[in-house]
Structures are given as structure tokens and as C-alpha cells.
Simulated scan of single mutants.
Amino acid sequence: MIRAIRGATTVNDNDEREIIDETKRLLTEMIRQNDVHAEDVVSILISMTDDLNATFPAKALRHFDGWTYVPVMCMREINVPHALPKCIRVMMTVHTKRSQQDIHHIYLRDAVQLRPDLQLTKKSDI
């Protein structure tokens, strides 16, 4: 079965190191909480809001052993008035045996407000 795993986070500044580090943190949690292996990944789409342009957030994947051949694409998020600023969003499409309700979508930092309905009832150690 092919499923999509969503995730989002925010950064404080339009800074290359912070964007890469926070994207890495988000991807790590998406992978860990959904037991994803590189061979299971169809593709990863990463978007950033208009106020972020210091780097490509896909560079974060270079820190993961065995993820060299995973297709990843970066893009600009739609510039909607009053949208959450400095936000990085990820959609990871994977092969999995999990049902939709067993997928753990990960929202960190200020991005938790995007989908409070998907927050785990128990806080994880993120």
C-alpha cells in the first residue's frame, strides 16, 4: 500500500544551518515514528513559505545514511495571507502496511497549530 506521511515545522530565522537542522529533525521523527526505510520511500516533497530562501531544505537528507537515491523536490508554499510564517512542510510518500489511522503525521514547534487534530495524545520525546 502507498501512503503519505505529512510533517511540518518552523524556524526562527531564514538561516541555512537552522533550516537544514530543523528539516533534519522533522524528517528524523517522521522516519522514526513510522518505521520508514529508504527503500520504502517513493518520493519526498518539501515546501517552504515565501520568507525562507537561505537554502534547499532537501540538503538535510544528505545526513541520512542510505538515503542517497530517494527522490526529493523542494518548492515554494502558496503565499496565503496570515499563513504560518517561516514554515517547512514535508510530504513523504512511502510503501507501508500501515493503515491511514496508524500513520503518525509529525508537527513540531509552531507548526503544531496547523493540525491540532493529528497531535498524539501522549507527548513524544521530540
Score class of each variant (00 low, 15 high):
Leu84Gln: 09
Ile44Gly: 01
Ile46Ala: 00
Ala4Met: 02
Ile46Met: 11
His105Ile: 03
Asp40Glu: 11
His104Glu: 08
Leu120Pro: 00
Ser47Pro: 09
Ile19Gly: 02
His104Asp: 05
Gln101Phe: 05
Asp110Ala: 06
Ala8Tyr: 04
Met92Arg: 07
Ser99Phe: 13
Asn79Tyr: 14
Ala4Ser: 13
Leu45Gly: 08
Arg62Gly: 03
Asp65Ala: 06
Glu29Trp: 02
Arg98Phe: 00
Leu45Phe: 08
Met75Trp: 04
His95Ile: 05
Thr68Pro: 03
Thr10Glu: 09
Ser124Tyr: 08
Met73Glu: 15
Val72Met: 10
Gln101Lys: 13
Gln33Asn: 09
Val11Glu: 02
Ala58Trp: 03
Tyr69Cys: 09
Ala83Thr: 11
Arg89Phe: 03
Thr9Tyr: 06
Ile44Leu: 05
Gln100Trp: 11
Asn14Val: 15
Val42Gly: 12
Glu18Leu: 03
Glu18Arg: 00
Ser99Leu: 10
Ile19Val: 07
Ile19Lys: 01
Asp15Ala: 04
Val36His: 15
Asn14Leu: 13
Met30Pro: 05
Met73Pro: 04
Leu52Asp: 11
Val90Cys: 02
Arg32Asp: 08
Thr93Glu: 09
Pro57His: 01
Asn53Phe: 12
Asp125Tyr: 05
Val41Thr: 05
Asp50Pro: 07
Arg109Val: 10
Thr121Arg: 15
Asn34Leu: 06
Glu77Asp: 14
Ala111Pro: 08
Thr96Tyr: 14
Thr9Gln: 00
Ala38Ile: 05
Asn34Glu: 01
His82Ser: 09
Ser47Lys: 13
Ala8Glu: 05
Leu114Thr: 08
Pro116Leu: 09
Asp35Lys: 15
Arg3Lys: 11
Glu39Asp: 10
Asp21Lys: 07
Ser47Gly: 14
Ser99Asp: 10
Ala60Leu: 04
Asp50Val: 06
Leu52His: 06
Asp117Lys: 14
Gln119Ala: 05
Pro85Gln: 12
Val112Arg: 15
Leu84Asp: 02
Arg3Gln: 12
Met48Tyr: 04
Asn14Thr: 14
Leu45Arg: 07
Glu77Arg: 10
Glu77Gly: 08
Asp110Val: 01
Thr10Tyr: 10
Ile126Met: 07
Gln33Lys: 12
Ala4Glu: 10
Leu52Gly: 12
Lys97Gly: 06
Ile5Tyr: 05
Gln113Ile: 11
Ser43Met: 14
Ala8Ser: 10
Leu61Cys: 05
Leu26His: 09
Leu52Ile: 11
Val94Phe: 14
Ile78Thr: 10
Pro116Asn: 04
Ala111Thr: 00
Asn79Asp: 10
Arg17Pro: 02
Ile126Ala: 11
Asp15Trp: 07
Gln119Pro: 07
Asn14Arg: 11
Leu108Gln: 13
Gln33Cys: 11
Pro81Leu: 02
Arg17Phe: 07
Tyr107Val: 01
Arg109Ile: 10
Ser47Gln: 12
Thr55Ile: 03
Gln113Met: 12
Arg6Ile: 02
Thr49Glu: 03
Arg17Leu: 09
